[in-house]
Amino acid sequence: MYAFDYVKPASVADAVKALSAEDAQPISGGQTLIPTLKQRLGQPSALVDLTKIADLVGIEAGSDSVLVKGATTHAAVAAHEGVMQAIPGLAKLAAHIGDPQVRNRGTIGGSVANNDPAACYPAAVLGLGATVLTDRREIAADDYFQGMFTTALEEGEIVTGVRFPIPEKSAYAKFVQPASRFALTGVYAAKLKGGVRVAVTGASESGVFRWAEAEAALASNWSPEAVETLAAPAADGMIGDIHGAPDYRAHLVKVMTKRAVAAA
């Protein structure tokens, strides 16, 4: 790692201020960021630690939505009674991110801000049509994700939480990349009051995306069989690497969608 200053603000306002310094960067668990910095792939002047801000930690399960604050760990989400009851698919997703040690440090805010194309959380945020809360505004999931490692966040903007609507049913099906344990392809399928949403991570070169054909088919018939009759999405634009060529990933999108619906 290159040298950097470490800043530990006690409030969101202080964090925003600290992040206004040139090349300052937030750290919210650091389970992706620290390995990246170890490879010297970034050179922040300062790391602003969001995990010590009391206001950013915690879960509030309401009657029609669940709020997960930005610096809440995956392990906390996975073990939260309220989340398990309201959105079991979300709790299960959190319970299978990375490994137990990653889940003890990694946070939802860090994951959503980074928007790794193979991360699990973006699938849930988009699949449930959640709202990303920041220090300055609320952003609908459909507007938030803008491609691999790209989001609607402005320079220095902090994810303070994610508000998930409680669906009728939902589940996440993950096909794990055997080395990194990220998603080779992961699908979050949700049946909500407003309709069906199907979000796919790990597969596309454009990052997390909604599979419109599956949503349409499932809206009229929420069943794995409805997915079975669909063609897999086009391989064009899917990620290709040693673990999965574009056609294999496209195929997995369909299989994982079926399995998510079956599990929901």
């Binding site: 750290i27 620290i34 390995p35 790391l47 040690q101 990653v102 003890n104 440090r105 080395a179």
Partner: peptide, 23 residues
């Protein structure tokens, strides 16, 4: 150096973490 192997696991406030990925 990529946080997979777990040879560095220690407990911080009772929870297991990878000491190679914590400042």
């Amino acid at each position: 150096d990529t946080s997979q192997c777990g040879a560095c696991v220690v407990h911080v406030n009772g929870e297991s973490v990878k000491a190679c990925s914590v400042l």
